[in-house]
C-alpha cells in the first residue's frame, strides 16, 4: 500500500520532462498502471517525472485527414469525443470499455501504450487503426508506425529518455467502419481476448482490412491471416467464419489461470467473428 520513497518532479513541458528524467526514474502520466505497481513495491523508481500537468499533451486535434490524440488525454475524454466517435468508432468503443469510471477519468492513452500490458485495450485497437505514435526525445521527435511499436511482453519501441507526445489516427474509410469487442477477465476486467477490426468495403467487397488482438499473445498483434483471407471477399458469415480460424496463426498464445491456450485461441476466433459480423 505504501510505495517506496522517491523524488517527485513536476514537468511543465515535454522537453523539461525529458531533461528531468534520470536513469532509474519513471514517467507519471495517469499513474493507473504505475502507482498500483509501486504500492505493491513491484516497481520502485527513484524518481517520478509528472507529465500530467503538461497542457500540450492533453489536446485532441482534428487534422484534415487524421485525428491526433495527446498522450495525456484520458480514456473518458476520448470516449466522449464526437469526432473520434464519428471517424473511428472503435476508438470510442474501446475507451469506454477500459477499467471503470474512475480509471477512465484519470488513465491516459499514452500511459497505457507505453506500459504495453498485453491485455490492455489500446494496443490492439491502435494496431487496427493504423495509428502512428509520435515520440519526443532530446533531439526533437520521431514517429513510429504502430506496427513497429509493440515489440514484446510489456516491451515497446520507446527508448529511455523518450516520451510519447501523441497518437495520430488516420480518418480512413476503414476506421469509419470499425469496432472493438472484448471478453473480460472477471477480476481485473482486462481483456482475455480483445479484437479490433476496421474494414473498408467497396461494392460489398473488402477493399482494406485491419484486424488486431490484445490479450492473446505476449503483445498485441495484427491477425494478417484473417486480413488476407478476407481481402477482396464479401463479409459473408461463411467467409468470416473461415477467416476467423486464422486468428492466432503464428502466435504464441498465452496460457494462464484465467484461460488456457486452447480456450483463448478459440475465443480469439469467436471474437474475430463477432467483430467482423458487425462491420
Amino acid at each position: 500500500m505504501i510505495p517506496a520513497s522517491f523524488e517527485y518532479k513536476k514537468a511543465t513541458s515535454v522537453q523539461e520532462a525529458i531533461s528531468m528524467l534520470g536513469s532509474e526514474d519513471k514517467i507519471l502520466a495517469g499513474g493507473h498502471s504505475l502507482i498500483p505497481a509501486m504500492k505493491l513495491r513491484l516497481n520502485m523508481p527513484t524518481g517520478l517525472v509528472d507529465i500530467s500537468k503538461i497542457e500540450s499533451l492533453k489536446e485532441i486535434r482534428d487534422n484534415e485527414k487524421s485525428i491526433s490524440i495527446g498522450a495525456g488525454v484520458s480514456h473518458a475524454t476520448i470516449a466522449n469525443n464526437p469526432e473520434i466517435s464519428k471517424h473511428m468508432p472503435m476508438i470510442s468503443e474501446a475507451a469506454s470499455m477500459i477499467g471503470d469510471i474512475q480509471v477512465r477519468n484519470v488513465g491516459t492513452i499514452g500511459g497505457s501504450i507505453a506500459h504495453a500490458d498485453p491485455s490492455a485495450d489500446w494496443p490492439g485497437v491502435l494496431l487496427a487503426s493504423d495509428a502512428t505514435v509520435v515520440i519526443a526525445n532530446a533531439e526533437g521527435s520521431r514517429e513510429v508506425d504502430i506496427d513497429q511499436f509493440f515489440t514484446g511482453f510489456f516491451e515497446t519501441a520507446l527508448q529511455d529518455n523518450e516520451i510519447i507526445t501523441h497518437v495520430r489516427i488516420p480518418k480512413t474509410a476503414a476506421n469509419a467502419n470499425s469496432c472493438y469487442v472484448k471478453f473480460v477477465q472477471p477480476a481485473s476486467r482486462f481483456a482475455i481476448v480483445g479484437c479490433a477490426a476496421a474494414v473498408e468495403k467497396v461494392n460489398g467487397s473488402v477493399k482494406s482490412i485491419r484486424v488486431a488482438f490484445n490479450g492473446v499473445g505476449d503483445n498485441a498483434y495484427r491477425a494478417t491471416g484473417i486480413e488476407n483471407a478476407l481481402k477482396d471477399q464479401k463479409l459473408s458469415a461463411e467467409n468470416i467464419g473461415s477467416a476467423a480460424s486464422h486468428a492466432t496463426d503464428g502466435i504464441d498464445v498465452m496460457d494462464d489461470h484465467f484461460a488456457s491456450e486452447n480456450y483463448r485461441s478459440h475465443l480469439a476466433s469467436v471474437f474475430a467473428k463477432r467483430a467482423l459480423s458487425r462491420l
Partner: peptide, 23 residues
C-alpha cells in the same frame, strides 16, 4: 491496494477518481 474496490473514491476537480491511485 490494487485500485479495485473504489472505497476511496472522491471527486477531483469534479470527476470521480480513486484517491488511492493519485499522489
Amino acid at each position: 491496494d490494487t485500485s479495485g474496490c473504489g472505497a476511496c473514491t472522491v471527486l477531483l476537480d469534479g470527476k470521480a477518481v480513486k484517491s488511492c491511485t493519485i499522489l
